[in-house]
Design a protein around this nucleic acid. Structure first.
Lengths: 345, 345
DNA sequence: ATGGGAAATGAAAGCGCTTGCATTGCTTCG
DNA sequence: CGAAGCAATGCAAGCGCTTTCATTTCCCAT
């Protein structure tokens, strides 16, 4: 155990100690089966003795591979991304990759910068959120031949990048049917900003389409777009409820907004679900902790993170820029915030 | 704009196009003031024209600096770490560094592995959580001369690594005084596992010490250690309340545990704070969303993340392994879950 | 035994950048 | 007007690893 000495030992040290060439040591570490067991043993012993750990920068430079995956996400503060990214990172670790992380704080302009940065740092692959993205970025990725995978969204065939996610519009449509089935005919919607967020857009679209299916036009619908956050959700809810013909059900684009709305309802003395129903999207932990527990759409974040890691690593190792997109299924979780319409029509 | 072409252009391409040596280009990019303005301009023009971006692996290898900071945290799923890490990452980005992240899933044995991994990947500095750590790791860090900063904990002078955080014991002691002031004399504690978690340990110690101050021995105290999570918190609460002389106040090691306890209380038909008081630690968002809102200790996670990034980068650029620790102050947030003791003594 | 072919190993050329030292070109002053 | 001094630049040697290609070794069929 001469490890942890002054200067970290390098490949050449191991080679010298074990009496082989650096090439053989390298092969021992990277392609063990290309080396005869006796040699391998000898080398591994030297490695242990020296406490040798390869220098990743050198390796990256020589092999043009960093064993690093970059992720550009809006924020980690959000439980939704945090959970998925945690699973992503765990699986990545299992596969021998490390996660390089950058966030955009929901600023579209920052995303391109972060992507270029992570690319310059040699990320072998990139995890991106949602499809909304300029052609310039797409061209950059393609030109550099960097595999990229989109998560939290599904690729219906029209998008440029492969994706793993779920059918945002479909899931919301299904929930809308539940809402309609309970007699609601005036629907309020609290959505995240849709301009640079295809997920938010699709969720609203799912509601619109379902309403149209039963002959309900935009008169039945009242949509508010707002920032992300509990307070923003609450404010939007108040606004919605102070309209003259206020909605009997308020569907929210995500659980955070929904919980904010719930809190506002409590403060306003509006009973949920007796006076008004509220629904969410995501099924983060808080949905079960509020009172009454939130009816929402369960999204398999953990599974998505895991699969995303596997897919991305596969793209990297097989040098593929494309891959069949996978759609995960969501389920509606009926808890207590969705009830029959008060019928005060 | 010949950028984004087939092969990413390299330093030599820029040198050729601008008619200078690679050394000058390098200096232009890294130490602009060591190059005469006319040359600089010429080079920068070539850089723009080629869409040149430096290869970080090569740079890292040559300069022995990666502009990368590693963080080893228990998990990102936890809102507590997520917020602090988000702030840390933002500030890091501002300073030109990128975050390499690894998590241990609260497994002590994994931490060392992750630290070595991040070190091998050339992290210029490391952010670690809490002081609990083997000497082997400490020696490793010191031998490799890698600056490391501990967050979420305070260094009272006895710890090996500089720290930024708060006085876990002191904060909890203060809260305990509030509890005692309300007449509570039988205190239950729900703590995270203390074996490998100095923060949890100190929080419990803070309670113990304060009780001792007023002459209350261990008979007044009933401590349960449990896993992290809402359900675990709930289960621990049930266990505590089913004791013969059940506590009139339950102090929890963190908000997640406290909210779990709160939910369990509701399910058991125990009224908070009439029948029993509950307190948390951290003041994560959920504390304001539950009903009744949770009395807890506010911790400046965002500020801590920011400062941590600044301190660590300073350590890196000044090549210091040490630095004065900073203590952030916490505040008690009295909301609704702490009330007077029912006095059924 | 022995030649042939596959498997194992070694030698050495980079990967793209930084940086110590040598060189060039100015300015400045005696 | 020339030498000294200094700023700007260039040269070239690495940084620690991977990988191609050549060489050696080994095994087995003959």
């Amino acid at each position: 155990m001469t490890g942890d000495t002054r200067r970290p030992s390098k490949l050449a040290d191991v080679a010298r100690l074990s009496g082989v060439s650096t090439a053989t040591v390298s092969r021992c570490l990277n392609t063990p089966d290309r080396v005869v067991p006796a040699t391998r043993e000898k080398v591994l012993k030297a490695v242990a003795e020296l406490g040798y750990a390869p220098n990743f920068s050198a390796r990256a430079l020589a092999a043009r591979q960093t064993f690093t995956i970059g992720a550009v996400i809006p924020t980690m503060e959000n439980a939704i991304f945090a959970r998925g990214i945690q699973a992503f990172q765990e699986e990545l670790g299992r596969l021998g990759y490390t996660l390089l992380i950058a966030s955009t704080s929901y600023q579209e302009s920052l995303e391109e910068e972060q992507i270029r940065n992570l690319a310059a740092r040699g990320s072998d692959g990139l995890l991106l959120i949602g499809h909304h993205r300029s052609n310039r970025v797409l061209d950059f990725l393609q030109g550099r031949e960097i595999p990229a995978l989109v998560a939290w969204a599904h690729n219906d065939g029209t998008a440029a990048l492969p994706a793993i996610g779920f059918d945002n519009a479909g899931a919301m449509a299904e929930l809308t049917r539940e809402v309609l089935a309970r007699g609601h005919r005036r629907i309020g919607v609290i959505s995240a900003q849709t301009a640079a967020n295809d997920r938010a857009r699709l969720r609203v679209a799912g509601i619109r389409a379902t309403l149209a299916d039963v002959g309900l036009g935009s008169a039945a619908l009242s949509v508010i777009e707002t920032q992300y956050g509990f307070d923003a959700g609450g404010a939007a809810f108040s606004a919605l409820m102070s309209q003259e013909a206020s909605p009997t059900a308020v569907m929210c684009g995500n659980d955070v907004l929904a919980v904010g709305a719930l809190r506002a309802a409590r403060e306003l003395g509006i009973s949920v679900p007796n006076d008004v129903s509220i629904t969410g999207f995501d099924d983060i932990e808080i949905a079960t902790l509020v009172d009454p527990p939130l009816t929402t759409i369960h999204v398999p974040h953990g599974a998505m993170g895991h699969r995303a890691a596997q897919m991305l690593v596969q793209m990297v190792t097989e040098k593929r820029l494309n891959m069949p997109s996978v759609e995960l299924s969501t389920t509606i979780v009926l808890r207590a915030t969705l009830g029959p319409s008060p019928g005060n029509d």
